[in-house]
Amino acid sequence: MIVADRKPIEEIIAEIKEHEKILILGCNECVTVCEAGGKKEVGVLASALRMYFLNQGRDVKLDEITLERQCDHEYLEEIRDVIDQYDAVVSLACGVGVQFMAEKYHTMPVYPGVNTCFLGVTEKRGLWTERCQACGQCILARTGGICPVSRCAKRILNGPCGGSTQGSCEINKEISCAWQLIIDRLKALDRLDDYEQIDPIKDWSTDRAGGPRKVEREDVQQ
């Protein structure tokens, strides 16, 4: 899933403080799972903002809605009838949802309520870690199912670097060295011999480097 983290409330206030009628818009997908932008967090943010405006002696309208998703037309359309009641939206969806919202409601100011962080997993409640950088050309078949692009601090395809120490990455003892994980996994699969195959220079044109990407599938287009 896409993992996001809450933005500091001061940052949100600084952006929206001039507005009078604000919609806080949550998303029921990834950001709900990572507890940054679901219905619950929408409620928490709305209460905090109400408190702030009350202390300022201002009467600001603050409504809460959480959509099934903000990255699909279908769900974003659900607010078309009510959007005119507001002069700003704080979207707690990931950056994708914020942008789709901005595209669809072209004259409505939209502010991000979370920092979108990475594609990752829930290791345990309250701990999310990165697994993929959407490079567009997955090499996991060659690396024992562990991604060096997202999990090695230098995205080394033929690692580890000399800084790998007791399973940790040179940048931080708390972070596992991706290449230690790859080697452990190749061993577990009885494929350690594969380690010596040199991974070729990667085609990064399918990555961010190649410019904005799209997937177009005629077979599923109507």
């Binding site: 580890p160 790998s164 230690q180 380690y195 010596e196």
Partner: peptide, 19 residues
């Protein structure tokens, strides 16, 4: 190139040189 015989994991230090 550089080689670090002391980095971990030790078991791939020679395979890495071979690479």
């Amino acid at each position: 190139a550089a080689a670090n015989p002391f980095a971990d994991p030790f078991e791939i230090r020679v395979p890495r040189l071979a690479k």
